[in-house]
Amino acid sequence: MPFVMKKMYAPIKQKAFLYLIKELDYTQKEAQRLIAKGRLFINGEPMTRTAGEIEGEFEFIYFEPITKGLEATAVYDEFVVFDKPSGVLIHPQNRKTPYSLIDELKYQYGRDANIAHRIDQETSGLVLCAKNKESERDIKMMFEQRDMKKKYLALVHGELKESICIEEPLLRREDESAIVRMVVKVHEEGKASKTDIRPLKYFAETDMTLVECSPYTGRQHQIRVHLFHVKHPIVGDPIYGQSEEDIVKFLDKELDAEKRIELSGASRLLLHANELEFELYDSVYNIKSKVDFEQICLESMITNSQCE
């Protein structure tokens, strides 16, 4: 598990953040942030005062990344790109999360490496990661300025015959529903959002279409909500297009795989980040996933038919 509790010893009385800087090579900002988050314990009690002092034995919760051997799809001097499998988190949800992509990145490229953007846990595909603090800042600025072109592949229910441009505003707002954890909806008060959808291949036997999705904005769940809005929900989506009762079961991890396949058509969300195109440091990059997503969709269809 990446988060481990380590016993440490300070031979003389000193500021805790200075000890962490010296012993663990943190910056002052990093050390004080971790102390403020309650990562340092004295006699079992967390210290949260960033200027607090330590002497003798204490415990510190330390992020120690692990690897599962996931290799980067593309490696450059300032950044790398991973092809994230479906089901893998970008960052740990809590200290008990056994593995996430940040583990793999920091294990292979060091503590200063960081993930520059996010995709959902169930979405597979390309994730751009910075190797250092400087490139992280520049890449995040690139995303903020919308200088990144992204293309996704998705398998959707129904036949989509022609390309469509969806420009529906998206709103995330808490309400009294039991599903406030995921509420994103098309709403006139929402933020401007735009997604181009292009059909690639229709599978008549399952009445499903493989489509390419090009989002021009980066709203949460944008592609999923837009496709659901035009009556072509993504196969395997356990949220959009499902009843509130079943959504809550999924979020509470009480929806078994067989029931999920019955409700949504697959045991995973069939959405894949397939291509990234951007300009960085005077060079243009076009990076494509090496995953055969159509084959994954075909295998999903076979699995689903076997479960019927």
Rank of each mutant, 00 (worst) to 15 (best):
L263G: 06
C165G: 08
E189T: 04
T206V: 07
R181Q: 13
K191V: 08
K231C: 07
F250P: 01
R181I: 08
E244I: 06
E258V: 09
D256V: 02
Y281T: 03
K249A: 11
K290T: 10
L170I: 14
V230F: 13
E258M: 05
P199A: 02
E167R: 11
S177L: 09
S163T: 07
E275P: 00
D252M: 07
E279F: 06
E205N: 09
S289K: 00
E167M: 13
T195M: 13
L270P: 01
I179V: 14
R198H: 12
S177R: 15
Q222W: 12
L251I: 06
L269M: 09
I166K: 09
Y202H: 14
E258N: 06
K191Y: 04
R224V: 05
P215S: 13
R260S: 05
L271Y: 09
E294V: 00
T206I: 02
E254L: 08
K290M: 03
I239W: 06
I197F: 05
E212N: 00
K288N: 10
G236N: 09
N274A: 15
D175W: 03
E254R: 15
S193E: 10
L227R: 07
D175K: 05
C165Y: 06
S283R: 15
S193P: 03
D292I: 02
L251F: 11
P233M: 10
A257H: 01
L170P: 07
K194N: 10
N286H: 13
A266R: 00
E189W: 06
P199L: 02
E159F: 05
V284I: 10
A192I: 06
G190H: 10
I197K: 02
H221N: 15
K290Y: 01
E244D: 15
D196E: 15
I197A: 12
H187V: 03
K290S: 09
L271G: 10
D207M: 05
I287Q: 12
A257P: 01
F203W: 06
D246R: 10
D246G: 02
V186W: 11
R172D: 01
E212T: 00
K288E: 14
L210E: 03
D292Q: 04
E258Y: 04
H272G: 00
L251M: 11
F278E: 12
D282H: 13
I239Y: 07
P199G: 01
V248R: 15
I247C: 12
E159N: 08
I166P: 13
Y202N: 04
E277G: 08
T209M: 09
K249V: 03
Q222M: 12
K259A: 15
G265K: 06
I261M: 14
E176N: 14
K231Y: 14
L160H: 03
Q222F: 12
V186N: 05
T217M: 12
L171Y: 12
E159V: 01
E262Y: 12
Y240S: 07
A204Q: 11
L227W: 10
Q242I: 02
F228T: 03
E212M: 01
A178I: 11
E275C: 04
K191M: 07
K249F: 07
Y216L: 15
G265D: 05
A192T: 07
D252C: 04
V225S: 08
E189M: 08
S214A: 14
K201I: 02
F250G: 01
Y202R: 03
E167W: 08
N286S: 12
K161W: 02
Y202C: 04
F228E: 11
